[in-house]
Amino acid sequence: MAAFARARTSELAEPVARLWPDLAARDLRAPEIGLVMLRGRIGGDGAAFNLGEATVTRAVVEIKGGYRGYGQRLGREPATARLAAVADALWQNEQERARVEAEIVTPVTRRLAAESLQAKSEAAATKVDFFTLVRGESEP
């Protein structure tokens, strides 16, 4: 679900259209935009407090075989949230799971890992290397 939540629209739309062209997904809950109240923790690890809201879009679909998929993503992209629900429904079907993993989950996870490594590498380049100046009075 993490991969479906963070996939780009094309990373869902392209494999779904290519591999499951005749998929008749039925909307159990049409895509809907709303809010989620984001919570922080007092002092970073204490009790929760309400930090502020974020937009979120959710959708629920059912595909042949009665497999239900839930899609929920930050932002306001109804079509993409529905695609996330479709991918989740396909993943529920054990016959399809391997293809969903190979064609959607793995590419998204790889991209996210590469982006995360890039971000860490950029941050690492700004790490301070301290060096201590030797004071004159010390004996050699």
């Binding site: 809907e32 709303g34 809010l35 989620v36 109240m37 984001l38 919570r39 922080g40 923790r41 929760a48 309400n50 930090l51 809201e53 974020a54 979120v56 959710r58 929920q72």
Partner: peptide, 9 residues
Amino acid sequence: PRFGFSEPL
């Protein structure tokens, strides 16, 4: 509408 609350970040 508000759908819910997040888990604490």
